[in-house]
Design a protein around this nucleic acid. Structure first.
Length: 245
DNA sequence: AAACCGGGGAA
DNA sequence: TTCCCAGGTTT
């Protein structure tokens, strides 16, 4: 795989290989998470907003408690804001409780309880940016919509040789363009989850597990780091394993 | 483009 | 202690 900046740089053959490797790995090693058992857009939105800058482990019990307390979007819309914040505030970023409350009221009052299914309408909801909108479109509605969260940002940034740590507009545009170009037709739900799990479990922020990465052989970042860095990375993980996780 | 919001876990 | 976490909004 060559270093790419635009989707025109993608080689169709190599892209197909990449998609296959990532999907196969996901079917073997992917995480089984509560919000992956549903396609209800209400459940998806709740999970995604709770997951903003918040770890999966921290969110899981809160997610269960939230839906247990507000089983339907009508329940959430009718609840007092304080009851919502009581559950969500302990996570930090305390504005998220009111975001969810407002979203519920908007969907119930303006959309007859049915979530909007267009990018534009979703982006108009409070607390819903490009990532969350893409998550709803792909996870709930099965659209071939891309997502770029911190995991995807890092994984495809490294693999395709994009300077993912820089936050300027051009880099972000490139990452989104690549994320959109690599989604396999009709498989966005599974593939987007796979990309996130790769970022969370293999292509980690610190000390990535290149040793067990299914696409390491064509990773630009690994090539740039060189053989010596790659070897050190492997040795680090071997020592770690010897000490017993 | 940079600041801001935040508690919690891992290194 | 620092770094990082399924981001988005405001300045």
């Amino acid at each position: 795989m060559k270093r790419i900046k635009y989707k025109a740089d993608l080689d169709a053959q190599q892209l197909q290989w990449f998609q296959r490797q990532v999907l196969d790995w996901y079917r073997r090693e992917g995480r089984d998470l509560p919000w992956r058992k549903t396609m209800d857009p209400y459940h998806i939105v709740v999970s995604e907003i709770l997951l903003h800058q918040t770890t999966v482990k921290t969110v899981q019990p809160i997610y269960e408690k939230f839906l247990d307390t507000f089983p339907t979007i009508q329940d959430l819309a009718a609840a007092p804001l304080e009851a919502v914040k009581y559950i969500t505030d302990p996570l930090g970023y305390k504005v998220r409780g009111s975001w969810l409350h407002q979203i519920a009221q908007t969907v119930v009052n303006d959309y007859a309880g049915q979530f909007p299914q267009t990018l534009e309408e979703l982006l108009a909801l409070p607390g819903v940016g490009r990532y969350t909108a893409g998550a709803v479109l792909s996870f709930a509605f099965g659209n071939d919509a891309p997502i770029v969260d911190t995991n995807v940002n890092r994984f495809i940034g490294r693999y395709f040789g994009i300077e993912y740590k820089r936050t300027n507009a051009e880099i972000q545009h490139q990452l989104w363009a690549v994320a959109e170009a690599i989604v396999p037709t009709g498989q966005a739900r599974e593939f987007n989850n796979a990309l996130m799990d790769m970022g969370a479990m293999v292509c980690t922020a610190r000390k990535p597990y290149c040793l067990v990465c299914p696409v390491s052989q064509s990773c630009i970042q690994l090539q740039d780091d060189g053989v010596r860095a790659a070897e050190e990375r492997v040795q680090y993980r071997i020592r770690e394993r010897a000490q017993g996780s």
